[in-house]
Nucleic acid binder design. Structure first.
Ligand SMILES: [Mn+2]
Ligand SMILES: [Mn+2]
Ligand SMILES: [Zn+2]
Ligand SMILES: [Zn+2]
Lengths: 141, 141
DNA sequence: TGCTAATTAGGAGTGAATCCTATATATTGC
DNA sequence: GCAATATATAGGATTCACTCCTAATTAGCA
């Protein structure tokens, strides 16, 4: 998503176009490891030495609210953010915490059981795999 | 799982059989809403007024390590624990945080893509649905 | 029954997230 | 462009969920 389009999205949601918001989004799409708010905060300080963690965090949560990013599913540790809105799934390493995207049409096409569809509004369906990544297997040999 | 079997499991893992461990496990299987450590702590204080949160938390994490419970996947808020080890999946309400079990053989039978199987050791495969539960739909009408 | 290593209670410490509020700024209407 | 104003931000305080520390307790074993 280019900046023009990003600014449009902000305006569509009555969010002011601020340099901080743009920088935070850019930092997020420039990283592929599903960073946390603090990751983004540390990196963005090079550009904006005075930015506050609260701004980064609040902004990322706002992005999640308007559907511009997703919060990755995990097991209770710091929230990690994902700017990739294409249907995809995750593998998470239980040793090092790395989260790797993968694409799979069978998973995308899974039906939601009608007992659930009838009772709930389903807004997200993801397959999450966990295990030990290649690097961690080597490391612990 | 009855207490006899639970004590066996503890011993198999060289964990001492303590009343706290048993009480924490019982409290967990008596609840179906995937409670957090603090939920369990609050409830168990009726029985053990002096139990510490650290004990509850440490014990639940130990249980997770030996595979006696699972930590539910969520979006970064307090860890929630699940004593149900049968293959099953979760629907989580994004409004009230309720987590509901469901069983689905199609989901259980999903193949892991070989590109992942070759590279990683897969220890868990779950389908997570999110959305708005029936009660929250009514409430916000 | 006594020894020893594991476990616990309770308090301190940590780190992420959130709240508070004075200041700054993007947007709107002139 | 300029002023008005509603929104957003910085920075510090606070909250909350853990996590660590250590002395006292206890389970398991000889
Ligand atoms: Mn992703
Ligand atoms: Mn469950
Ligand atoms: Zn790893
Ligand atoms: Zn709900």
């Amino acid at each position: 998503m280019d900046i023009k389009r990003l600014e449009e999205v902000f305006r569509q949601h009555n969010l002011k176009v601020t340099p901080q918001r743009i920088a935070i989004y850019q930092e997020l799409i420039n990283s592929s490891e599903h960073p946390s708010a603090i990751n983004i905060y540390e990196r963005i300080k090079a550009q904006y030495p005075n930015i506050s963690l609260d701004t980064v965090n609040r902004t990322l949560l706002t992005f999640a609210e308007i559907g511009l990013v997703r919060i990755v599913e995990g097991r209770g540790d710091p929230k990690r953010f994902d700017p990739n809105l294409h249907p995809h799934h995750h593998f998470r390493c239980i040793k090092c915490g790395k989260i790797i995207d993968f694409y799979n049409e069978e998973y995308d096409a899974l039906d939601v059981p009608s007992t659930l569809k009838d009772r709930f509004i389903i807004t997200s369906k993801r397959v999450n795999l966990e295990g030990i990544c290649d690097e961690c297997q080597t490391r612990s040999d």
